[in-house]
């Protein structure tokens, strides 16, 4: 399995990269490459040109920006896991990223890459949706900010334009009493999940005031289950009722390791698992 021919361009700066991308619609951005390289090696993808943005300085910054935690697109998963600002402001991030593949992949794979790739089985797109994050993209007409819920359109499909590149993600800082809790069910540690859930919770275990549920590895993009969340808020955890609600709210798509029926069951069970992680 050797990649087909493509040309390689090391971008000097963002504008350089945007310019090439705008003019060649068969070019692709190379950031960490941890999803792109397997596709190239197996000739599942044959772009004309790879635009390597990994050496552009400043794109891996992690900082507090107003009322948000900003994570630069080129910050690797390892960078993010080891970052104190992230740890202090978004403690769930470490546990979530620990489930993303394996250490050597996390050393190269980037935050922005995972967000931009839009794999429905990946954790970060669901996290972005669950936290109401803004995705900052840069293009020929300058920067624009897209709310994560509007960013994902379908299977590996996003609203990003041909000339645009993800430059960072802004996660709103957590309010007092707000918590992000997460769980997933995998066949093997580090695999893509059979189903996963990121919950954005306001309140405590016995007194949940607000709840947002976003599932991953269930459909063609992060699946928001607002109706089910409301039902859970009103009635508490009732397996049959929540399962019924999820079945109407999410179009579960089976894969090799779990049928749609299995995913529906796991999604329902994950609500219980996630809520049990809340403090009393």
């Amino acid at each position: 399995m050797k990649a087909a021919h493509f040309s390689y361009h090391e971008a000097l700066n963002l504008q350089d990269a945007i310019k090439i991308k705008a003019h060649d619609d068969e070019s692709v951005i190379l950031a960490g490459g941890q999803s792109l390289l397997p596709a190239l090696n197996m000739r599942l993808s044959s772009p004309t040109c790879l635009i390597d943005i990994s050496k552009i300085s400043g794109l891996n910054e992690i900082k507090i920006d107003g009322q948000t935690l900003f994570i630069g697109a080129l910050a690797t998963h390892s960078d993010v896991m080891n970052n104190k600002t992230v740890k202090n402001n978004m403690p769930c991030m470490f546990d979530i990223l620990k489930m993303v593949a394996h250490p050597a992949i996390r050393n190269k794979g980037t935050h922005g890459g995972s967000i931009a790739y839009g794999d429905p089985a990946a954790e970060l797109p669901a996290l972005a949706v669950a936290t109401n994050a803004e995705i900052i993209v840069s293009g020929q007409n300058g920067d624009r900010s897209i709310n994560a819920k509007d960013f994902y359109l379908g299977l590996f499909e996003t609203t990003i334009n041909q000339d645009e590149i993800v430059v960072g993600i802004k996660y709103p800082l957590l309010k007092k009493g707000q918590k992000i809790v997460f769980d997933e069910v995998c066949r093997r540690h580090g695999d893509y999940a059979m189903a996963g859930l990121i919950a954005n919770v306001m309140g405590s275990k016995n007194d949940i005031k607000d709840l947002k549920l976003v599932f991953f590895a269930t459909g063609d993009k992060p699946d928001v289950a607002d109706k089910t969340a409301r039902l859970c808020l009103e009635n508490g955890y009732d397996y049959d009722k929540l399962k019924n609600s999820l079945s109407t709210e999410i179009d579960f798509a089976g894969d090799l390791n779990s049928s749609s029926e299995m995913k529906l069951h796991l999604a329902t069970v994950l609500i219980k698992k996630v809520l049990s992680k809340l403090e009393i």
């Binding site: 390689y8 397997p38 790879l50 394996h102 250490p103 050597a104 050393n107 190269k108």
Partner: peptide, 23 residues
């Protein structure tokens, strides 16, 4: 050659990477 087996892991600038997933 897809990063799943780990056999090609080497050190690049002090960090472990899959050398099949780096050009």
């Amino acid at each position: 050659e897809q990063g799943a087996c780990g056999a090609c892991t080497i050190e690049m600038d002090g960090k472990a990477v899959r050398s099949c997933l780096v050009l």
